[in-house]
Computed example of a mutant assay.
Amino acid sequence: MTATHSFSSLIPDVILDAVESTGLWSDSRIYPLNSYENRVYQIGIEDAAPVIAKFYRPGRWSEAQIREEHQTLLTLKAAGVPVVAPLEFNGDSLLRHNEMFFCLSPRLVGQHPEADNLDQLYQLGELIGQLHKTLTTTPFKERINVSPLSQMQESAKQILSGRTLFEDTPLPAALQLPEKLKPVYQQQIATLHALCENRINAYWPSKLRPIHGDCHRSNLMLHNEQFHLLDFDDCQNGVAVQDLWLHITQTENPRQQLSEMIEGYESHLPFDTRELDLIDVFKCVRIISYAAWLQNRWHDPAFVKAFTWFGSEDYWLNHLNELKNCELEWGGMSK
């Protein structure tokens, strides 16, 4: 895949043609939804409820990996887990138009979870426990296995090199980590890598489990008094705590929030509290990977418009400060 913009051909007529290729008849209303990795739209349908059309970023996942995501969602729905599963047309949920994979799903209206709401945190723990229990016997065969140290190394290497994953040419200088900050960055990464490696060596589960993989507040919706899980684009074989820690909003004393989620989780599955010591690892990796992700996607005009602040010296100084805070707060999540 080159740095050519993947979605440049996805104009309104193409979007509507794709949707109508399923046999649905659009009323021509298209509302872009908040998605950067893929392209997601609400599409009005004649004499029916709108549908959500998701066009997958070319080259990110293989067909087999996307099909495994869909099959997982259909399995979860059949088991009574509240998820938004893709619609099937002639027995298939993964569709193709102009060489681009897409799917349609029902529209779900509701609210995202409230930060710090302990009752909702308990409910989220229940839902994640239900999810993990349902998938216990069916590990992913096509999706990735989480590997925090490798992910950290690859992301940091990219940032230091100033080159994206897509082509072996430098990024514009304005998007690169300034040369004068590279020694500090290298030292900070080395420190965090050593801390993460020690934590992983102290405990890492003997077996990974299928998880959502990106279970933040925006991927949950409260609908008819029940939370539903959205967007399984990052589903993977991972660690249970990966689907829990992103809901922690308190840094001084996260114990109460963790306690509520774990109590809800254990209504379906036992939770190994040794995993709490891995929260700091996943937090570090997420911060580093996010910066690398922005660099990798900079050929996409949507990123240029949405992340105007990216790449400045102030951005990189703030990024370094985030990493330093990770070191200073090390252990705070699990204490």
Rank of each mutant, 00 (worst) to 15 (best):
H97V: 08
H97G: 02
Y56M: 04
F271L: 02
W61L: 06
E126Q: 15
T251V: 11
P301E: 00
A174L: 13
E275S: 04
R199P: 05
M221Y: 05
V14C: 14
H247Y: 05
Y31E: 14
L124I: 01
N237P: 00
S26R: 01
V241D: 04
W204P: 01
A64R: 14
R217K: 11
N38T: 00
Y36F: 10
H193A: 08
G162R: 04
S6T: 10
A291C: 08
L323F: 04
F102N: 04
E69G: 01
T169V: 11
N219T: 01
V241R: 06
P86L: 02
A190I: 08
E114Y: 11
S105N: 04
Q65C: 05
H247Q: 03
R199H: 10
L104N: 00
L118H: 02
W25H: 15
A190M: 08
V241T: 03
Q257R: 02
L294G: 04
N253E: 15
K324E: 13
G110S: 01
D272M: 03
E263Y: 13
E260M: 12
P205E: 00
Y56N: 05
I159N: 02
A48L: 03
W309A: 09
P50A: 07
C215V: 02
L121Y: 00
R60E: 06
S289M: 14
M1E: 13
Q111E: 10
N117S: 07
M100T: 04
D47I: 07
F310S: 08
L108Y: 13
G59M: 00
N98K: 12
R29I: 11
P210W: 01
S9K: 10
